[in-house]
Simulated scan of single mutants.
Amino acid sequence: MSKYSIRQFVQETQQEESARDFFELETDRMLEVNLNGRVWAKAGSMISYDGNIKFEREGMLEHGLGKFVKKAFSGEGAQLMKANGQGRLYVADMGKKITVLDLEGESFFINGNDLLAFQDGLEWDIKLMRRVAGMMAGGLFNVRLEGQGLVAFTSHYEPLTLHVTPDKPVFTDPNATVAWSGNLEPEFVTDVQLKSFFGRGSGESVQMKFSGNGFVVVQPYEEVYQAQQS
């Protein structure tokens, strides 16, 4: 249906009052957080809220000097905000599709640009990909999360999960790689043949190689990251 009356439009697009879980997908591209305490979210991701909620940008030294130094290198994409209070908070990121995972003691890596929100209490750390930073504009970083709680990440269009086994390593384009299981440590390789197709400066020639047992999540889109701030 392409035409709506006002009444029909409101009915089709109104929020779901029955939603009560901590993280609820209000739509495929908008996350509702039923807040009673604190949640971490990507800075700038707030769309709307009701209730008594206060927002605060993450303090530089809040998590110790180590994370501060890493954030200085990883740029604005790593910025998080805290939302404290009671109410409903709606977050989104450039209309990207949202996936919610319930971690049950597992660890999980997410590309720092694709992390949308996570439940307070999860352990997290920023991992810099220094070896690839000189090969691609802006380099890459990721966030490792572990523990019990919910985490939401984004992808352009539908994500695809690829299984990694000892006899079948998986190679991915870093710009299309969204997340991977916490037991995997990717290495970066350069494909000389691809260089001949895309040119010496192309990120296409740099690949992430995943070996072992686990999985990696990719998106049908190559996201170009802004150069880091010096």
Rank of each mutant, 00 (worst) to 15 (best):
Q15T: 12
E17D: 13
S18P: 03
A19L: 14
L25T: 03
L25Y: 04
E26G: 04
D28P: 09
L35K: 11
L35D: 06
N36M: 13
G37K: 04
R38C: 00
A43P: 00
M46C: 12
Y49E: 00
Y49H: 07
G51F: 12
N52G: 13
I53M: 04
K54P: 02
K54G: 12
K54V: 11
K54M: 12
F55R: 01
R57N: 01
E58I: 02
M60G: 05
M60P: 02
L65P: 12
F68E: 07
K71Y: 03
K71T: 03
F73C: 06
G77F: 00
A78R: 04
N84K: 10
G87K: 09
R88A: 08
L89I: 10
Y90I: 04
Y90E: 02
A92V: 07
A92M: 11
D93W: 03
M94P: 00
G95M: 06
G95I: 05
K96I: 00
L101W: 07
L101V: 08
L101D: 10
G105D: 08
S107A: 14
F109L: 02
N113S: 14
A117C: 07
E123I: 02
D125P: 03
D125W: 07
R131E: 12
A133R: 14
G134C: 09
G134I: 12
N142V: 00
V143N: 04
G147I: 07
G147K: 09
G147L: 09
L150Q: 14
